[in-house]
Amino acid sequence: MRTKKRLNDHLNEQLVKFRIEIEAGEYIAPEKMHFSAFVEEWEKKYAVKHLEVTTLNTYKRCLKKRILPVFGSQRLDQIKPIHILNYLDTLEQDGSRMDGKQGNLSSGSVFMMYRILKNIFSRAVEWRIIKSNPVAQITRPKVQYKESRVYSEDQVHQLFEVLQKEPYHWRVMITLALTTGLRRGELLGLEWKNVDLNTGVIHVQQSITTFKDGEPIIKQPKTRKSFKEGSPTNISNSRIK
């Protein structure tokens, strides 16, 4: 941009892009954009392309149930950090649950609302609809994790005994869950080609976490550590009879 010619070339290039957006019906007018309208653009242009199906479904439920009723009619550029802060604060108050139970939302649910809002406003900044992300200036809500309750050794032994009376497929599935620590989606994604009965190992290479139009969505395991071609799960000590 150091010369007038380069500046003019850049401006002409942006003008061409602007005209293309208008003619294609993709131009978004910042001064008229309400939060609900931008969420529709966000879903079409970003969410369906970049979010996992389960994540997208969760986001859409939260938006419909809790976020859009509050921010939907507000102009995107007029939502400030204080509005986000006040909203998150109301979620932590008694009576914020919507399932008929007493108390407030869990810290995990509050964080989910923060996460969704931050994602949406981040896209608005990237697309130059607004200049700054109001959520980015809010301290991330703390999540209080509950201690996991696991079966004792005696309970596992009792479960194995009860399983012997159940159909074979349940005996296999539950035994693998107890002895390997595989996630539910990883268990559902197992195929015979992933199981080596000679060496007693399972190669975890895919996972099924949800279905779309009746068909399973197959993907790689959740983390890279889960996907290990050369470090399979040993099942030689499993009690499948």
Rank of each mutant, 00 (worst) to 15 (best):
E153Q: 14
L197I: 11
K165F: 12
K131D: 15
I138T: 00
Q206D: 04
G189N: 10
Q158H: 13
T180G: 02
L176D: 03
Q144D: 14
G200H: 01
H203P: 07
L190Q: 10
Q158T: 14
T139L: 10
E191A: 13
T139V: 11
V172L: 12
Q137H: 01
W170I: 08
N133A: 03
S148L: 12
Q206P: 00
T199F: 10
L182M: 13
V195H: 07
R183T: 03
R171D: 13
T199R: 15
P167S: 07
I202K: 05
I202V: 08
Q205D: 07
H157F: 13
L182I: 02
E147I: 07
I174T: 08
L188W: 06
R140M: 04
G185M: 05
T139F: 02
K212P: 02
I129H: 13
T199H: 12
K165E: 14
L197Q: 08
L188K: 05
K142H: 11
F160P: 06
S132P: 03
I138R: 00
V172R: 08
L159T: 07
V195P: 14
K212E: 12
G189A: 09
Q164R: 15
T179V: 11
P167A: 07
Q137I: 01
A136S: 00
Q206W: 08
G200E: 02
N194G: 12
Q164D: 15
K131H: 12
E166Q: 15
V162D: 12
Q144E: 13
